[in-house]
Design a protein around this nucleic acid. Structure first.
Length: 412
RNA sequence: GGGUGGAUACCCAAGUGGUUAAAGGGGCCAGACUGUAAAUCUGGUGGCUAUGCCUUCGCAGGUUCGAAUCCUGCUCCACCCA
């Protein structure tokens, strides 16, 4: 992007970058004005993003708003990260069809540290402001809480889709959950946010902040919502508990393989939200008639590169090609099998071998896999479906279960 | 405080005395196909020293030749009325 003589990026260029992939900007004209004012005055916008330290694995779904925040940073604006160590005690009800299990303060404190480390892979933390909302909430008196609660009615609260759904389904809505959007909104007051980022389902909370800010005579923030990234199953939102996520801390080969396993349909969404590839290039890759495989490979490389560099991304891609063409991966983990677990003649029943390697959780399970033809060994990939077979276990023996599990045996 | 309904395997959910290790669906695993996937098809989805044995339907007792199913107590959950 070109930088004007004043050292600032022009409005149109900022607009172009910032609106990419965005679901909604509420209200849009206010956002434009804020940008204009910022450019004219040289005062960066304060862009807030809140994270509740509820888990530990940051996945690509989380990176959607984080990447947007990074774009703001790169345009000279100020990233204001709120670690929601107090909101985490409540549990965000947004988009949930049940109450979140609440965490203890200790858990939250541990998670928060870990979170920042992971977030640092996307955000330049040296240039970001980081706040914990417990810093202010922990000092509050009961009267302060009452005053906060005055800002919203039961009707407003129960109108939100997630609560309404639960009420209809006769599932519980706890009162403390109602506090959540108010707390999140108050964070915006504390940090004087100009813009707040969030997922689509966050819109309600993002708008609560506007009215709280106005009541405190602040200029209300603009809500900028990002679409919810679908998971590797291509249908449901990406989430740890759904097992359809790609973690930012996962190794390159796994990340790449997971990207390749997504259905074709969400590819455009992934390109738009997870890469900086110009849209024109994306269009070219996804043009009808081309093998979607190639587009997906480009996508996988682009994503893995962000976390591990292009060298490792290329390596991951070639590994994947090897494996899908039926070859073994270049790097096969050694797994030690204790010698004294073997028969006097150095043999071991196949189900026990599989369990010893950690490929199956029980011998019963291992038997089923074997009977289904999911087990083979040696360079010639000898398949046996006989659960009673005892194979000779020697150093360096290759053992495979399914397509993904492979190990080289080391006798110990 | 009163009332009603509920708790079954990873999840949802059938089953109200005996071919019930427990229907069906989802998810997951394996196999076939493929573009790597998706879709589709096939098989599987409590454990074990394995053609037999052991354990499981909220918890603890009881009735019975036999209980997920009947009885008693308990725990937990939801909704409704106050």
């Amino acid at each position: 992007m070109s930088v004007s003589s004043s050292g600032r990026v022009s409005l149109d260029e900022q607009w172009e970058v910032l609106r990419r992939g965005v679901e909604a900007i509420v209200p849009e004209d206010e956002f434009r004005k804020k940008l204009e004012r910022s450019i004219a005055s040289g005062v960066p916008l304060r862009v807030k993003y809140g994270i509740d330290p509820t888990g530990i694995d940051v996945h690509l779904g989380h990176t959607v708003p984080l990447r947007k925040l990074r774009q703001f940073q790169d345009l000279g604006h100020t990233a204001v990260i709120i670690i929601g160590n107090y909101t985490a005690l409540v549990g965000d009800p947004s988009g949930r069809d049940e109450t979140r299990s609440s965490l203890t303060e200790e858990q939250v404190a541990v998670n928060a540290k870990d979170y920042l480390r992971q977030v640092g892979r996307i955000i330049d933390l040296d240039r970001a402001e980081v706040h914990h909302n417990g810093d202010w909430f922990s000092t509050w008196s009961f009267l302060d809480v009452l005053d906060l609660m005055r800002h919203m009615t039961l009707g407003q609260m129960s109108a939100r889709e997630d609560f309404a759904k639960r009420l209809k389904a006769e599932k519980p809505v706890y009162l403390h959950e109602c506090l959540y959007p108010l707390m999140q909104g108050w964070d915006s007051v504390e940090v004087k946010a100009d813009v707040e980022l969030g997922g689509t389902e966050q819109l309600f909370s993002l708008l609560v902040a506007r009215s709280l800010q106005q009541s405190e005579s602040q200029s209300p923030q603009v809500a900028l919502t990002m679409p919810i990234l679908v998971g590797t199953d291509g249908t449901r939102r990406m989430g740890k508990s759904l097992g359809n996520y790609i973690g930012v801390a996962e190794d390159p080969v796994t990340q790449f393989a997971k990207v390749m396993s997504i259905p074709d349909e969400p590819m455009r969404q992934y390109f738009t939200l997870l890469t900086d590839l110009p849209i024109a290039e994306v269009d070219a890759l996804l043009a009808p008639g081309l093998n979607p495989r190639d587009a997906k490979e480009a996508l996988g490389k682009a994503i893995v590169t962000q976390y591990s560099g292009s060298e490792l991304a290329d390596h991951a891609a070639s590994e994947f090609r090897r494996r899908s063409s039926g070859e073994d991966p270049t790097e096969i983990p050694d797994i030690t099998i204790p010698r004294d677990g073997l028969d006097p003649d150095g043999r071991l029943a196949v189900p026990h071998l599989i369990v010893a390697l950690g490929f199956e959780s029980s011998t019963s399970n291992a038997r089923r896999t074997i009977e289904g033809g999911g087990f083979n060994y040696g360079p010639d990939r000898v398949v046996t479906t006989d659960v009673k077979e005892r194979i000779e276990v020697v150093d360096g023996l290759l053992v495979r279960v399914g397509k993904k599990k492979i190990a080289r045996i080391k006798l110990g």
